[in-house]
Each structure stands twice: as C-alpha cells, then as structure tokens.
Design a protein around this nucleic acid. Sequence first.
DNA 1: ATACATTTGTGCTAAAATACACAATGGAAT
DNA 2: ATTCCATTGTGTATTTTAGCACAAATGTAT
Lengths: 223, 223
Amino acid sequence: MTSKYERANASDGQSRIPDIVIGRLPIYLRSLKILLSQGQTVTNSQELGDRLGISSAQIRKDLSHFGEFGKQGTGYDVAYLCKQLEKILQVDCIWPVVLVGAGNLGHALASYAGFENRGFRIVGVFDNQPDKIGTHVGSLQVEPLTQLPAHVARHHCRIAILAVPTKAAQNVANLLVEIGIKSILCYAPITLNLPEGIRVEYIDPVIHFQHMTYYLEKDCLKT
Amino acid sequence: MTSKYERANASDGQSRIPDIVIGRLPIYLRSLKILLSQGQTVTNSQELGDRLGISSAQIRKDLSHFGEFGKQGTGYDVAYLCKQLEKILQVDCIWPVVLVGAGNLGHALASYAGFENRGFRIVGVFDNQPDKIGTHVGSLQVEPLTQLPAHVARHHCRIAILAVPTKAAQNVANLLVEIGIKSILCYAPITLNLPEGIRVEYIDPVIHFQHMTYYLEKDCLKT
DNA sequence: ATACATTTGTGCTAAAATACACAATGGAAT
DNA sequence: ATTCCATTGTGTATTTTAGCACAAATGTAT
C-alpha cells in the first residue's frame, strides 16, 4: 500500500515532483480561496487558468501529480480542492515564524494581518539595536537576539524572516541555521551562503524592477 | 550593421532572448556590485556561479546572448560587466516610480534607501484614506489618488508599486493602466487581470512560505 | 433510455532550458 | 619563443517543462 507520491525533501535525492510544480500550488490555492470567499462552490481548470494566466492543461497536469481531485464534466469543488492543496503544502495548520529585524520592514511584516489565515503566525520579533528592544511591533515586543535560540526552541520554529540590514544578513542567517531554522525568507538584497538542506527564498523589489525595465521603452532621468 | 540582438518588447511578437535569462541578469548585477564595493576588480563565471548557486556554464551562456564581455584565461572585469548589465537592463539611469498605498508596507518602501543606487526613485506616494493624506513617509508627503494622473504624467512614470489593501488592488491597477503605467509591482496577494502589454510582478511572502512548507518536516501547531 | 455537452486526466509531442565538453584564446612562467 | 594553465564562448546532447488532443467519465436535456 504505497501512497501516490513520495514527499520530496532535503534527504530525498530524487524528488518525484518538480519544484516548479510545487511553486505553482500556492498560487492555485490563493486563487481558490478567493473564489471560496466569494461563495463560488465549483470551478474548473479553464476558469482557474484564465484567472492566473496559466493554461488549463498545465493546471490539470500539476494537480494530477497528487491525485484526482476533479469530476469530469463538472470541474473541481472549490472547498475540497482548497483542503487538498492545503494538505499537500502542509498549510492545514499554523506554522510559527520568527522575524529578525524590527526596522520599517519588520514593522510592516509584524503588523500584517494576512498571515494567520494562510498558515503562518509570527511568534517573535528580534533585533539587536538597543533602542528597538522592548518597543512594540504589532502585538509583539521586540526582544534581543540573545533570546532567539530559546524562542525558536520553545516554539519549534522552522521558518524565519530575515529583515535586517544587508551587512548583518549573512551573520544572522548563520545564527538562524545554527539554532535549527530550516527555511529563511530573506529580504536583504544579497544571496546567502548557507549549508545544503537549508531552503532560502528571496524578496527584493529591485530585482523585479530591473526585470521590468529591460522591456520598457527607455525614457528615464539621466544620472 | 545590425546589433547583436533586438530588444524584446510588448509589440515584438518574437522576443529573441528568453525571459528566464533576463530574470537572472539582475541577480548577476547585484552580486557584481557587491564584489565591486568590496574592491574586487576581476571575477569569473565559476566564482559568480558559486556565490549564486548557479552553474558557470549557465552564466556564460546567459551573458553570451548580449555580447562577449569576458577575457579567456582571466574572466570578467567586474566594473565593466556591471556597466554592461546596467545598460542591457536599462538601469544606467534613474527610473521614477510611484507608490500607491501608504500603510505600513508603503511606509517601509518609501523609507527604503536602497532603490536609488540601483536605478529607481520613488517620486510620489498616494493613498485615498483621508487620515493618511498629508502625512509624511520618508521624504515625501502622501497625496490623494486624484493627484496621481498628473504626477505620473509630469514625471513620465512607467512603473508603479501597488501596496494597497487586497480589495482595492484591482481597481487601483486599472487606474494605473489608464494613466499610462506600463509595469506594476503588486504586493497585494491576488493575481491582477490587466490588458496585454502591461507587465505585472508579484511579491507575496506567503507564497514563499507555502513553497517552503511543502519540503519541511511537519511539526506545527494544530488549528 | 439515449444523445449531447462538458471537463477531467493523461499519453504523446513539441519546445525550452540546462548541462556538457572542448576548441579557441590570452596571459604568465620558463 | 615556447609551453602551460585558466577561462571564455559555443555547438551539441540531455533533461525538463509545457502543450496538444482525445478517450473516459459525468451530468443534463429530450
């Protein structure tokens, strides 16, 4: 009795399902939840694809890696597919996340209300600048980095947000890995150098801007 | 006398250079600028690849789409390659950007000092909430949305940051397109529905989190 | 009951992206 | 001068990803 697929992970040399497919599932889930919130009970690969600018075949094939979730002639039950995707992505629960960096960005992230209903909760905010420690961000209080290891252990955190100044980012990342963090969302505009098995994703708006400008008619201020 | 490549754009049916290649150039540029700031004058595809977790062959092939920038046996002059990439990406100048949404995120973006030296400047912040209008974010003052069209025209803005609440995002995006914006960086967790030729890129941290959790050992709080 | 309209899941094909591997080149050392 | 070493740029092969197209299944209408 084997399951339809084996979960890919760091120790699993040959992941069965392409990462690019995994990367699309959260997009599908996000769109489905919007449909759900609008009271729509049924959808289909065509509709979903149109909304996302993805071909319907792509969506069907992606989903088919994990099982058969649709009904021929009808499509997909929105609530059911949501539930299934949440299970696949393991967001049918709340993951505790630590936030390092209590600057403007840290404040914005800590105050953001949209994490909770998508599977995540920021359980601690840390910074090393003395003037920040003790101040409130969202409903949390900024703690010194020395408190981080205990906090991560207590909450069993696997995920961290790195929102510190660029020059501090690599060192803080090293610390995060040391204390057991497995996945880092890095807002610093650098590529981190970390051991195998640690997953890092990056958010840098300038990367997106520079991608855009390639395609724009040039008509900007001279430096 | 034809140039080595024709620039891809919205009207150009067959873009010659894959978008995925364009998407990597800003990463290369970012890394090169760090090397430059550290005083390193020469690098090579191997070193760059190691830093970025990309194969050296990939980097060489990507660059080869645009010309021959290296020297055999030596590698690449860091400053020269930076300049070339900036020219290719059209960031050898400052692009004016308008920011819509003066919430926590808008504040963080407006206060961020890292845009200017990478080719971008936020030239206006707009919001419709009366209590926000007139307040200061960074060095700018929040203006009502009614001022947006004139502002975009005056500064020849082509790029906008969309940092408004989810429910307002589509409408504001439509407005942005109407007044001549060509590229939108959307922080709202939705997929926008916009006409052909408008480039939209998205930043949604939860998408990254959900990508990460697929690969994590499950060990999180039950809902 | 039967025919019809719809939509899935998937085998196969096509295209795109990546990796390999090496000739060509430039600089350094002898 | 010549040899040696390092590294590029690129033609080719391999792998990955996306798209096509249709049988199978399901519900609906007559």
